[in-house]
Design a protein around this nucleic acid. Structure first.
Lengths: 243, 243
DNA sequence: ACCTGAACACCGTTCAAGT
DNA sequence: ACCTGAACACCGTTCAAGT
């Protein structure tokens, strides 16, 4: 409310190489800072509102300048996905260090879910990209490592990685879709209400009894349930192999 | 190559209520036919090229006319997702009828995967929507029904539905992303090659040994592996409950 | 009731020209 | 080397006006 013209480039407080929004002419672009700004805009306005033009504005630059550092918007999104996974493998290693392979695997899946949930539309951003950066590969390496050190074969370890990854991504995708703000002013009836009505009015007896548990429950418990199924499934495989 | 002007509205051959692209003036829009046309365009050009304007062209109408039948593009996509799941529950009931609950659950997951894979970008379309139509709800009802009839409690049945759904969606998402055409003329190095290079040149010993199994193997086997983990996990739950 | 014409407020991306 | 200015070829969506 105080000075409307000074509220723009106030993000880079500590860095000396700030954007210098006004007066100072060039306003250099630095890739890593650009990715961080993009993630901030994502949190503020969501994926649909994340625009090359808006990102350029936030960096005090014209849209075309971004293409000197990111060949395409897809490349920018990939860099954002990679950045979101920073520290995931390390955090999981710390929290799962005391447990057996099942607990260490679960810790990895949990920290990936936490990382995706930490940013608005995080799962959607991640689902649309295929990073080959150190954070993404480090996570896969950690999962595969836990399984191979537990005695699983190469093929089983790779497939278990895919299963855990698919489940975790799919789960956080549904989770963030269910938690989305949707109607800002209470306009739209929202998803859960329409779902409840559709289930109640149609021939879905089994679904109707299960719906409160699904929609009402906390997603962390749901996630833990699915995670347990996967880990117990892997244990039964271990048993069949005779160890 | 023959007559360039007659290649447009040649899709509705049998229906008498065709679009009548030229001369016949109004060109009425019918919602169910519009959804089918949208799915055809999806298969032909992919999700990113599916545009309200292009869909309107294919129906011989101006873009604004679509909004008389679909309030938003999102609503159109939801209708497409719902349509993609037509017959999924019925097909699964037929193919899994002979088996126990585990086999019937697996049959449901398989037919959902098949339905999503049947259309280009099917998983992406489905992931971005939340249909409350009969095909979508019928699938959830079938899954919950199989589990409750097998003796699982309401909460476990609901959570197992979510786990199987998240895994199936996440898996087909990765599957279609890996199989995407990407570079039409062999321009881009493609994802798998860049991934292989990144894994080989970095500190990822476990991933490196598991990568051929992951990238080279067929996705159906990967899917079956994850599906088995979930079903075996549910069996172990059943055992702990003492039945 | 349903579609056309035309606009509004944007997009991602490219590229000559400046510095 | 890196950014600006300005354009190109589009978007989703709205709405008066026609029929």
């Amino acid at each position: 409310m105080s000075s409307p013209s000074s509220a723009e480039g106030s993000t880079s407080t500590a860095t000396g190489t700030a954007t210098s929004t006004a007066r100072g002419r060039p306003a250099r672009l630095e890739p890593s800072r650009t990715v961080e700004t993009a993630l901030r805009l994502l949190d503020e306005s969501g994926l649909d509102a994340l625009t090359m033009r808006r990102l350029a504005d936030a960096e005090g630059v014209r849209a075309g300048a971004l293409y000197r550092h990111f060949a395409t918007k897809q490349e920018l999104l990939t860099a954002m996905a990679e950045r979101m996974l920073a520290g995931v493998a390390a955090e999981a290693a710390a929290s799962g260090a005391a447990g057996d392979w099942g607990e260490r695997l679960a810790a990895l899946a949990r920290s990936m879910r936490t990382a995706l949930l930490a940013r608005r539309d995080g799962a959607r951003v991640y689902a649309g990209t295929h990073s080959t950066g150190p954070n993404t590969l480090g996570f896969s390496e950690a999962v595969t490592g836990v399984l191979r050190e537990a005695g699983f074969g190469d093929e089983d370890a790779a497939r278990a990685l895919m299963a855990v990854g698919a489940f975790t991504l799919g789960h956080t995708l549904e989770e963030q879709a269910a938690l989305q703000p949707e109607c800002a002013d209470g306009e739209t009836p929202a998803d859960p209400e329409r779902l409840r009505h559709a289930v109640a009015s149609g021939p879905y007896p089994h679904l109707a009894t299960g719906l409160p548990a699904l929609a009402g429950g906390d997603f962390t418990a749901h996630f833990e349930f699915g995670l347990r199924l996967l880990v117990e499934g892997l244990r039964s495989l271990e048993g069949n192999r005779g160890r």
